[in-house]
Design a protein around this nucleic acid. Structure first.
Lengths: 197, 197
DNA sequence: TTGTAGCTTGAACAAATGTTCAAATCTAGT
DNA sequence: ACTAGATTTGAACATTTGTTCAAGCTACAA
């Protein structure tokens, strides 16, 4: 039976995400993808190449998701909120807290600078997406003129990374949703024009 | 020649910190510690036991450092600031950005729940240290009565994790010091009593 | 000097792991 | 049904890796 490439990448991503690059063994992948070693190597090259494919795919999906929420909301701030709420703060059962890109960068410190770069690029893309939305918000009068969209995007990344990292570091990650709301409240507090509704 | 236990643990920690638990091979440790396998096993048990020792030692050092800064400063907020500035935001050459505990928790997701717990406990200890200092600050009138020390401690952890995670995810980690100052500014903005100096 | 207790050495081992490839199997066009 | 090309299979291989242990070494008391 011919394998489903998209599905295989999805499954491989989940495994790499959960276990990390090093801890994921080819035999784990063979079982998860229900493919024999030869097929995997024929389809993806080798372990590193498959990991790279997963990273790039995850980054692209993230970027597409952000664009999706931007399309669904006339309010750019709301779009960022929805994106983060749905992508990063979903506290579903057995869900992985950490961002796949951030976790990979952390693990590939020191070694595999080559793979690391793909994850860094993916994160930068999302940050640029945030920046564009903050700029749009500024043009719509939702954000102060003095505020700096690039700086806000950076700040937003820090907040999300902190939130996910923290919720990952405590088993009791109950009120992450509340904390996200607090982050957006402090954003409004500091950067919304005084006279705005 | 008899080995220096404290020095060996220090060196092992640096290696585990840089490479991670999985990527650090016993042969790397043998070279770094300049000890033969038998000696390492006689002194520390095995790889996992050595890693555990490094984790516990790092956590203890962190906690001691926080107490040190608390002793040096009459202002508890300043103590927290100095601690973070010196422990987490040192942008020295070849310095590791991520916290060893956070990085370990991230890597040990899924597997090695046993080791993971030690890192979680270490982080919790630091958080409790923050909480005590925020409480002290509140008693000294440096923080609003309505503010919640435990919540502030949590918030602080999130900010530091976010900052370190971000600076780790971008090669250009130049203005991390500035960002830390911004974090403390927003802390004062939101939680300092209005009439305070 | 000699004995001994404890530490160190490094060769060796068994298991794990990434990868290969010849043979088997499947697919589609005639 | 037949064949050529593509895909899949899984046993096998070369390394890598965590760990062991008998033999060697060192320091010190008698």
């Amino acid at each position: 039976m011919k394998y489903d490439r998209a599905l295989a990448i999805e499954k491989a991503t989940q495994l790499f995400w959960k276990l990390g690059f090093q801890a994921t063994k080819m035999r784990d992948l063979q079982e998860e993808l229900d493919m024999r070693p030869g097929s995997i190597y024929a389809a993806f090259g080798n372990k590193e190449a498959l990991f790279k494919i997963c990273l790039l795919n995850y980054a692209e999906q993230s970027r597409l998701a952000l664009d999706k929420y931007a399309g669904l909301n006339s309010n750019p701030i709301r779009a960022i909120y929805d994106f983060i709420k749905n992508m990063a703060v979903k506290a579903e059962e057995g869900k992985i807290n950490n961002c796949f890109l951030v976790k990979s960068i952390s693990e590939l410190d020191g070694n595999n600078a080559h793979l690391r770069q793909y994850a860094q690029d993916g994160l930068k893309e999302v940050e640029l997406g945030f920046e564009a939305l903050f700029l749009e918000a500024q043009e719509k009068g939702l954000i102060k003129q003095e505020s700096n969209p690039a700086r806000l995007a950076k700040w937003m990344q820090i907040q999300v990374m902190g939130l996910r990292s923290y919720s990952n570091s405590q088993d009791n990650a109950s009120d992450v949703g509340i904390m996200l709301d607090e982050i957006f409240n402090s954003l409004k507090q500091a950067h919304q024009p005084a006279l705005s509704e």
